[in-house]
């Protein structure tokens, strides 16, 4: 089975966010970058699918500046076979990026393309479904269960009030949610092996976009919270506030 995984480099989720001088992006100084947490589920799933098939190839693909090569190496250290760096500045527009990704994924002829449900930086939540649409492939998003047999995939995804079940033929695109698996950590052996695995660099140019970021701002502080009191004695005052001030009862 031939499987591609789309990987994005994002700030660590515990990082403190400050607005950059341009007013539309974050200040990157001092911020630690990691593979997008949801992409780790995709990487793990890809390795598991290939292992289950007994043969095939896993390829990790990232679009971005040269620093993404470090993130790609992390994926290789986990056990992915080879990497492709689509070298160029990514857009803030999901479709503009998806077009470049789809253009380079198409010729690979994969049985499955896996990506994260969302990137924890831009919360775009769109790349996978867009790539699928552009390649005219079936797509299931936010899957927390993925089984492949006989050229078909069955998936489960959480929806309001239950778990939706679906199936499709391969090749297809899947975006991965928490619960799909427990991503492995790179082993020391894996880290050594990763240095020798192929990492191809393909220069790309991301095209024009129809969306533009006007500004990025810190959210307004929630009005300073109020400690109503201590222990059960504070309950009547709380209920009073919820009733007459907040009017939510």
């Amino acid at each position: 089975m031939k499987i591609a995984v789309l990987l994005r480099r994002v700030p660590d989720t515990t990082a403190k966010i400050a607005i950059g001088a341009d007013g539309v992006s974050i200040a990157e100084a001092g911020v630690k970058f990691v593979p997008n947490p949801y992409d780790e589920y995709a990487l793990e799933a890809a390795i598991a699918l290939k292992d289950a098939a007994g043969a095939g190839e896993t390829i990790v693909v990232a679009l971005g500046p040269d620093v993404v090569q470090e993130t790609l190496r992390t994926a290789l250290a986990m056990g992915i076979d080879r990497a492709i760096h689509l070298q160029g500045a990514a857009s803030t527009d999901g479709l503009a990026n998806a077009r470049v990704l789809a253009e380079h994924l198409g010729p690979l002829g994969c049985d499955a393309i896996l990506c994260g449900k969302l990137a924890v930086d831009d919360y775009g939540q769109q790349t996978g479904a867009m790539v699928a649409e552009l390649l005219e492939l079936p797509c299931a998003t936010a899957v927390s269960k993925l089984e492949v047999s006989g050229g078909r995939a069955t998936v489960e995804r959480e929806v309001e009030g239950g778990v939706e079940q679906a199936s499709c033929a391969l090749p297809a695109v899947f975006t991965c949610d928490k619960g799909l698996n427990n991503p492995r950590l790179p082993s020391l052996k894996g880290i050594m092996a990763a240095k020798k695995k192929p990492l191809d660099i393909v220069p790309v140019t991301v095209g024009e976009a129809q969306s533009s970021v006007v500004s990025l701002a810190l959210p307004p502080e929630r009005a300073a919270g109020r400690i109503v009191g201590e222990g059960a004695a504070a309950v009547p005052a709380l209920v009073q506030l919820l009733t007459s001030e907040a009017k939510v009862l």
Partner: peptide
């Protein structure tokens, strides 16, 4: 932007060649 809507929105956007703003 429910779980279903989040699945649908980017598909529609890609089909139309449009931008998609989520959440």
């Amino acid at each position: 932007a429910t779980s279903t809507g989040k699945d649908l929105a980017p598909r529609v956007a890609a089909r139309l060649g449009s931008s998609c703003a989520m959440d």
